[in-house]
Design a protein around this nucleic acid. Sequence first.
DNA 1: CGTTGAACCTGTTTGC
DNA 2: TGCAAACAGGTTCAAC
Length: 305
Amino acid sequence: MPELPEVETVARGLRRAILGRRIVSVSLGKTDFIDDPVALEQHLPGRQFEAVERYGKFMLLRLSAAANGHGEPASLLVHLGMTGQIAPIPAGQPRGKHTHVSLLLDDGRELRYTDARRFGRMAYLTETPLAEELAGFGADPLEVGSEEFRSRIQGRRARIKALLLDQTVLRGVGNIYADESLWRARIHPARLGAQLSKREAGTLCRVLKEILKKAIVMRGSSISDFLDAEGEPGEYQRHHRAYGREGKACYRCQTSVRRAIVAGRSSYFCPKCQPGPRGFALLPLRGKTRKRKNRRNARRPSARL
DNA sequence: CGTTGAACCTGTTTGC
DNA sequence: TGCAAACAGGTTCAAC
């Protein structure tokens, strides 16, 4: 679920909520998504949150050295996977079925991590292992220049969609923003990286940046279950032009938006605005008559982790 | 190098 | 109505 704009939104929320707070105790549920659960229990109590950073789709919760003066500075690395949520809540609330990490803070609240599918990841890392962990990631799509962007895709025979999703090429882009930027740049997801003209690559780089920045302002996209650190959904889904719009009219030319599997993922695009490889297979339209049920999307969920 | 499919796990939506 | 298949914002790995 969470891509760069969603993770950035969560990170900003956490920054306001937990900076300066000290961890009192740790309570774990299922731990198969945690690198070393015992390390969390051993090293987190007594530490203070000193900074919250985002690196691609990862969040880095920077921790002070241990209270006793021993122990090196370290970080709690958090990846939200597809369904991860992290938010501080008043202590004592009943723990949800999928809440697997709860950090009691010194102000009486609990920082809780909830993740139904447990595709996320959590790890306690000191400086050196952290640096190793983060080495090898690609450019920050918010900062990358068109020159570097081009150098990272030119000469690659992989499909542009696969390259956008590849975290060693760019860090932070996922399925939604890959499709949205390709639609805006009028580039078919199955085109090969090496096939893009200099102009196309430049356009893609520019619109990707614009879309991500706008999405951050709108606090991310909530399709079904993304909630930020305040328990609020984002609003950028209202601006989607391709993602999830199968069968609906293209905003530019009214042609029906189609779906195909590219790089192993559902990919949405306008077959007219984004001409692709000859005979590229579209998937048959699905979800024909979609009745508009009570979109419980409209509801404003309150933080309940 | 690249692609595809499966796996990880649970919940929700769609199709017959 | 019911049940099974398909699908979901991600990542990784084996096989070709």
